[in-house]
Design a protein around this nucleic acid. Structure first.
Lengths: 233, 233
DNA sequence: ACCTGAACACCGTTCAAGT
DNA sequence: ACCTGAACACCGTTCAAGT
């Protein structure tokens, strides 16, 4: 009759167990089966119990995104930025393949979660440390983002930025402390540090550079007789 | 009292008007607002009336995908495959930007619609006509697919292919008639014509070639001092 | 032929109540 | 502190009925 060890008594829910069960449910039964009620049933609990651990379903989805990113391998640091980046991309891809719902969920989130920004910051920092200019790092992030994630990431939350300039300033300062490389790279793109929050960048020019890079690469492979001869131009 | 011209009488619904209203609703209020009931209200009708024109919501979403693709500009044919392809990609992008929900919906569809396959077939045909090998065209479609659609397309419907070999054969023949360039390209990838339906291709090798192309391009730009000097290597 | 009303089995979420 | 029951405002969809 010890109250903490009754047989059949579940351990109390935590945010982590809820997220893990959500990921497992989406992996097993598909993202369309993930409802608060189904998730609760898997946890042996009633749907309303979940709301003590996650605010709502949106936050659940954001938490699942964070859980996926946490599975990425820690980055190697060999001193070769391109080789290191290549490994990170392949690791991210392996993780995404384990969670087929992830690309769709990522695409549906209105704003990047802290883990997304932290990952982006770490990738950007690696490229900057390798000597790439902030502008080229920015361009590279856009190119790789479309190719890897399969969607176009908005770094800054969508929706209008705070009206109050003081509040905007504070937001910037917090952002700069947490994601310095992302900020460096964002500033390189807009050339106007004060207007960064919510400013965005020249997507059209970036997109055109990306397709020109891919089309040039295809032309080069074609002229080299790929796949008959060699893979490298 | 002429029964066909009573004032205030709606014209009868058609599949096309339903789809147009669905696209307009998603454009204006966001895809999360698109419910059968809201859509019906916009059309001055009750939800159940829609089911005479579209089988269910899944088919509605597929129809919206088709409507978006129908907005792509007709392809130019200048004789330069790369320039023509560039224009098609830019046109597709302009269309996708007009419908911010489209990438997310495309990513959520389990199988490509006929219009998606027809577009893909036309793009593949242009590359083949430009002299690219089927294998390189295949690789190029994978690279560009992420850029255009914003996600990784599965050409063949997911789910198990038909068990009956005769039925599989028939499916192949229909596919070959409708999408010959796609079939050419798919065969180049798998090297096993009989195993094509549901076979897939070597995604890993394709993915690695894509990231190597992008990383090589970034290195080249870096060594050329981009953006200080020139854009082209 | 085309649309409707009532009904069913689901959703996410709130609130007051239980232990 | 943590969970539950009942309830609310929604979903997609079926079926028999209306005009």
């Amino acid at each position: 009759m010890t109250p903490t060890a009754l047989p059949g008594k579940r351990p109390p829910l935590t945010r982590a167990t809820v997220l893990a069960a959500a990921v497992a449910l989406a992996d097993t039964s598909g993202i369309e089966t993930l409802s608060m009620r189904n998730l609760a049933r898997d946890l042996g609990v009633v749907a309303m119990a979940l709301y003590k651990h996650i605010a709502n379903k949106e936050e659940l989805l954001d938490g699942m995104v964070e859980a996926v990113i946490a599975e990425f391998d820690p980055p190697a640091q060999t001193g070769d930025w391109a080789a290191d980046l290549r490994e990170r991309i392949l690791s991210a891809r392996r993780t995404m393949l384990r969670h087929p719902w992830a690309a769709q969920v990522f695409a549906g989130r209105p704003a990047p979660t802290p883990a997304v920004l932290a990952h982006l910051d770490s990738v950007a920092a690696g490229m900057l440390a390798g000597g790439l200019s902030p502008a080229l790092t920015h361009q590279g992030l856009h190119m790789l983002g479309s190719l890897i994630w399969g969607f176009h990431l908005e770094v800054f939350p969508s929706g209008p930025p705070p009206q109050d300039p003081a509040e905007r300033e504070e937001m910037m300062i917090g952002f700069a402390a947490a994601y310095p490389a992302v900020l460096t790279v964002a500033m390189a793109a807009s050339h106007d540090p004060a207007a960064i929050v919510g400013a965005g960048c020249d997507d059209q020019a970036e997109f055109e550079l990306t397709i020109d890079l891919v089309l040039d690469g295809l032309k080069r492979l074609h002229e080299a007789g790929w796949p008959a001869k060699s893979r490298k131009s």
